[in-house]
Simulated scan of single mutants.
Amino acid sequence: MAGSADTLFMPITNGEIPLGEGQWLYLGARAIDGGFPDELRAALVCEQSMRGAYLDLQMRGMNVSPRVDNTDRFSGALILIGKHRGENETMIARASNMVSAGAPILIAGDKTSGVAPLRKRIAAFAEIDGSLAKYHATVFWLRNSVDFASHFSSAKTSPQGYQTSAGMFSAEKIDKGSALLAEHLDENIRGDIADFGAGWGYLSAELLNRFSPRTVHLYEAHCASLEAAKENLSDYDKGQISYYWHDLTREAVGKKFDWIIMNPPFHEGRKTEPQLGVQFIEVAARSLKPKGGLLMVANVTLPYEKTLQQNFSKVNQLARRDGFKLLKAQL
């Protein structure tokens, strides 16, 4: 089904903007409906930090990395924005620094991404060359002629003592669900531990700061968050910590743990998607040693108890606060 990624490429595919020579930077990259024409496939250098979307592009033979840091200037940039204003502005500023002066920059997003107010903000300091709307999304384009970073003012603070950046889950403060889970970590959570959906490492940091697990394994689908976790846990790392850029909903874990801790995601974009948590629970059950345990936190409205009871012999609610519930399950 066509979407905002297809809209992003329309000015090129309909001939309004020539592809020309050289390579194009594609940030927030996602596949398009029907796949990329050969000419586009050869020209694009894609960046995608989310493991699932990265794998989709890789399977289509695209040149894709979780982070592009080329020193050579690109001939143009295509930016597919998401729901985080700060992350969108960072992508645009980076693209401006990575493409040639006067080169085209195309920016697109669906109606829920904030593309309309973003265009308005940019139009206040730069000339917009054109725009079009299709597939419930809008693309606009301009020439690389201004210092975008100096015009964007999205302020971001990180939780004290941690490194985070815009676009990461709970980048500016510890979320209440994770805080609830952290309070209930104790010396019984020991042995080989996995942190599913580890983000930038808060729960693992709490575990390592207070206890001495034999090993800790962080699984996270957002590469930038995982890189931040490495920095945030560096003081604790004595060789017992492992990091996996991993999509738990589609890649096998291949290890067994004594305990798994997790605050699973429950949004796909802006849409609530409880099935993500269900998949995390099912993977957790398959990834535990006999008599292993799961400690997870979830929004009180999410109906995970049935899945837990289907996969574990014992399920208990340990706490309930601030709209979250803490659940413990054992095989």
Rank of each mutant, 00 (worst) to 15 (best):
H151T: 13
A166H: 15
G52H: 12
M296Q: 03
R30D: 02
N63Y: 15
H151N: 09
F266N: 00
Q279Y: 08
L185S: 02
A228G: 12
Q309W: 00
I260A: 01
M59F: 12
R214A: 13
L326E: 00
G114I: 11
K289N: 13
M91Y: 13
N209A: 15
R210L: 07
A43M: 11
L288H: 10
G239Y: 05
E87R: 13
F312C: 02
G34L: 05
A53M: 11
L233T: 11
D235Q: 15
S170D: 01
A77C: 02
G177L: 02
F280K: 08
T71E: 15
G323L: 14
N63W: 09
D72L: 12
A43S: 14
R60W: 09
R321I: 05
A155T: 14
R85Y: 09
G109V: 01
K134N: 07
A298N: 11
M91I: 08
P303W: 06
N70K: 03
R321A: 10
K156Y: 12
L40T: 01
G102H: 01
A221K: 06
S313D: 14
E206A: 15
E251N: 10
E220D: 08
C223P: 04
L233N: 10
G130P: 04
A171C: 14
L295S: 01
A198M: 06
H267W: 06
A194I: 01
Q240S: 09
C223W: 12
A123K: 04
V45Q: 05
K306F: 10
N63Q: 12
A205N: 10
P265L: 03
S49R: 10
N311T: 04
G197K: 02
A194P: 00
W259R: 04
D258M: 10
F74C: 11
G3N: 06
D258V: 11
A53Q: 13
A229Y: 08
A198K: 12
K291I: 04
R67A: 14
I241S: 07
Q160T: 13
D147Q: 11
E183I: 08
F148K: 07
F280H: 03
D38P: 12
A53I: 09
T301K: 13
V64S: 05
E305G: 09
Q309N: 15
R41K: 14
N232G: 03
E187S: 12
L302F: 04
R143L: 01
M98E: 02
D192Q: 08
W259K: 01
K173S: 15
S178C: 02
G15Q: 09
D195T: 11
M262Q: 10
I107D: 02
M262F: 05
S225H: 14
